[in-house]
Amino acid sequence: MSQSVSESMTDVDSLNARKTYERIAFLYDFLDAPYEIAWKRALRRRVFEGLHGAILDAGVGTGCNFVAYPPGVKAFGCDASAAMLEKARARADKLGQLVELRCSDLTRLDWPDATFDGIVATFVFACIEDHEQAAALSELRRVCKPGGEIRIVDYRLSPRPLVRARQKLMSAWLNGTFAATYTPKTEDYFDQAGLEVIDETFIRSDVLKMIRLRPL
C-alpha cells in the first residue's frame, strides 16, 4: 500500500471515530453510567496513583478521570472530539478542576517533545484502528519525558469460555455505540513505537488490563 493511500485510510478512520463521538457526546455519560457506577469509578484512582508533575489524560472524553487526578499535578487533556471536550470543560468547571484541554488527535498531538511526566489513556486504544496504533503510541512516547511513564488501560478478551461468549455478544454494541473493541492489538506495536513495558496487571478480573510503559 502506498503512503498516500495509507495516510488516506488513517484520516478516514480518524474521521469516522471522531464522528461517532461527536454524535454520542450528549448521551455518552448516560450510556456509560451503568459501567461507571458499577466498577469504572472505583478503578480510576488506582490508574493515576503515584503520578506527579505534568500529566496528560490522552483521550480525555467527557472528563470522567478528573476526580482521580493526584493532588498537585499540572493536568492536561486532549480528545479528537470537540463535542466530548465541551462536556469535559463543563465537568471541570463544576468540579473546580484545573485542567488545560485541547482538541488534538492522538496520532498528531499538539505538544512539544518531552512535555509530560506521566500519560494515561483509559479505554482509548480499544477505539483506535490497528494501523493507527503505532502512530498513536509513538506520539505518546514523543511527548513523554525521559524517565516518565505511560499507562494504558483497556479491555481484553477473556480466556474463560462463558465470559468470552458474553463479550462476543456485546461486541456489536461496543463497536456500534463506542467504536471500540475487546481485542485491541496495542501490545504488537510497543517495540515499533520505542516503548518498554514496566508492568502489566489485570485490574478487573481478566477483562481489563493496565500496562505501564516507559520510553526507550
Results as ranks from 00 to 15, higher is better:
1 M>G: 13
2 S>F: 05
4 S>M: 12
5 V>E: 15
6 S>P: 02
7 E>M: 09
7 E>D: 14
8 S>A: 15
12 V>T: 14
13 D>C: 12
17 A>M: 15
17 A>E: 11
20 T>R: 10
23 R>H: 13
23 R>F: 14
23 R>Q: 12
26 F>C: 03
26 F>V: 11
31 L>S: 06
32 D>R: 03
34 P>L: 04
36 E>R: 14
38 A>C: 07
38 A>V: 04
41 R>M: 07
42 A>M: 02
42 A>Q: 13
43 L>P: 04
49 E>N: 14
50 G>D: 07
50 G>M: 05
52 H>M: 03
54 A>Q: 08
55 I>E: 09
55 I>M: 05
61 G>T: 07
62 T>G: 13
62 T>K: 02
65 N>C: 08
65 N>M: 11
68 A>W: 07
69 Y>T: 08
71 P>C: 03
72 G>P: 11
73 V>K: 09
74 K>M: 13
74 K>L: 14
77 G>Y: 02
78 C>Q: 05
78 C>Y: 06
78 C>E: 00
81 S>A: 03
82 A>T: 08
83 A>P: 01
83 A>N: 12
85 L>F: 08
86 E>R: 15
88 A>K: 01
91 R>I: 00
91 R>K: 15
92 A>Q: 09
93 D>Y: 09
95 L>C: 01
95 L>V: 00
96 G>N: 09
96 G>A: 10
96 G>Q: 09
98 L>F: 09
105 D>A: 15
106 L>E: 11
107 T>S: 10
107 T>Y: 01
108 R>A: 15
110 D>F: 03
111 W>I: 06
112 P>M: 02
113 D>Q: 07
114 A>W: 00
116 F>W: 06
116 F>K: 09
118 G>M: 03
120 V>L: 08
122 T>M: 12
123 F>G: 00
125 F>H: 04
127 C>T: 13
128 I>C: 05
129 E>D: 13
130 D>K: 11
133 Q>Y: 03
136 A>Q: 06
136 A>F: 07
136 A>G: 06
137 L>N: 07
137 L>W: 07
138 S>M: 11
139 E>D: 10
144 C>R: 08
145 K>F: 05
146 P>L: 00
148 G>E: 01
149 E>S: 04
155 Y>S: 00
156 R>H: 09
157 L>I: 09
158 S>E: 12
158 S>T: 08
159 P>W: 06
160 R>H: 12
160 R>L: 01
161 P>G: 00
161 P>V: 03
162 L>P: 05
163 V>M: 05
165 A>Y: 10
169 L>Q: 09
172 A>D: 11
173 W>Y: 14
175 N>F: 15
176 G>I: 11
176 G>E: 03
179 A>H: 15
179 A>Y: 15
180 A>Q: 10
180 A>E: 07
184 P>I: 12
187 E>C: 04
190 F>P: 01
192 Q>Y: 00
192 Q>D: 02
193 A>L: 13
197 V>N: 06
198 I>K: 15
202 F>G: 10
203 I>H: 13
203 I>Y: 08
204 R>I: 07
208 L>N: 00
210 M>R: 12
210 M>L: 14
210 M>E: 14
210 M>Y: 02
210 M>W: 01
211 I>A: 02
212 R>F: 03
212 R>N: 01
213 L>D: 05
